[in-house]
Simulated scan of single mutants.
Amino acid sequence: MRQNPSFAFTDTAELRRVIDANPWMTLVSSTDDGLVASHYAVLLDADRDDLTVVGHVGRPDDMIHGLGTRELLLVVQGPHGYISPGWYGDVASVPTWNFVSIHLSGVPEILSPEENLVVLERLVDRFESAMPSPRGMWTAPNDPDFVHKLERGTIGFRLTPTRVVAKRKLSQNKSDEVVDTIIEQLESSRSPYADPRLPAEMRRAHDAMRTARAEQA
């Protein structure tokens, strides 16, 4: 992902927020047979306050990726959406796509079966907590034999990234008036190609920019 200083995204707390809110990630490895990509839910490591993440892959994806032996790229895709040139007013312009994306790269550590069980339980609890009747990993009719068999079919990993490339392209190069118009159009659902969370993400970024400008004035 090519970086642009205008769209650089480096604040650790904000990066953690986006990672936590977008756990469904793309895992990419470069192997002897070419590029390999898989898709799994990944969470921030509950015991760390940096960008370390934990997750798992199902066997034999660990072998396909060479998990633990080569660099793994995790692609975190945040809110994104199409921006129409018609929202810029009567000026020469072209369409674009606003987005928030984070690339985490490093060689992952393979978790022990006990650690993997903890991660699997966290994953289940994370998403079941939003259900009307949450069902935990150890909840009947699941029994210990079933859960441990499930664990043996997966390989857990912990990735502390050695390289982070993050980009938040949210019309930072446009005037406040144009940004407000774009947010209004997105909030009015006038773009069929936009994540409904995008206007809030734009508002968050631009409110911070405006506050910083006011403090410098």
Results as ranks from 00 to 15, higher is better:
215 E>V: 09
196 P>V: 10
22 N>Q: 05
205 A>H: 01
142 N>Q: 15
46 A>D: 03
159 L>G: 06
97 W>S: 04
79 P>M: 06
125 D>P: 01
110 I>M: 03
115 E>W: 06
38 S>Q: 08
70 R>D: 10
125 D>F: 06
97 W>A: 02
103 H>L: 10
36 V>S: 08
90 D>S: 14
8 A>M: 12
163 R>N: 13
87 W>E: 11
7 F>I: 03
120 L>T: 07
123 L>V: 03
115 E>V: 05
133 S>K: 15
117 L>G: 10
204 R>H: 15
20 D>L: 06
51 L>Q: 02
94 V>Q: 08
148 H>A: 09
55 G>M: 01
28 V>N: 04
186 L>I: 00
53 V>D: 05
16 R>Q: 07
3 Q>C: 03
146 F>E: 09
37 A>G: 11
9 F>C: 02
31 T>P: 04
69 T>K: 14
176 D>I: 07
67 L>P: 02
75 V>Q: 11
151 E>R: 12
7 F>C: 01
154 T>G: 05
72 L>N: 05
42 V>Q: 04
93 S>P: 08
10 T>R: 10
141 P>I: 10
167 K>F: 07
185 Q>C: 07
60 P>H: 08
101 S>L: 04
151 E>V: 13
70 R>C: 12
180 D>K: 15
78 G>E: 00
125 D>L: 02
12 T>L: 04
8 A>Q: 12
170 L>V: 11
213 R>L: 09
167 K>M: 02
156 G>N: 07
77 Q>R: 11
26 T>G: 07
94 V>R: 07
93 S>A: 15
170 L>P: 08
55 G>K: 08
157 F>C: 00
129 S>L: 07
162 T>C: 10
87 W>V: 06
75 V>Y: 06
162 T>M: 11
38 S>G: 11
192 P>I: 00
216 Q>Y: 08
142 N>R: 14
81 G>Y: 08
202 M>D: 05
22 N>V: 02
33 D>R: 12
60 P>E: 12
104 L>F: 00
198 L>I: 03
52 T>M: 14
135 R>F: 13
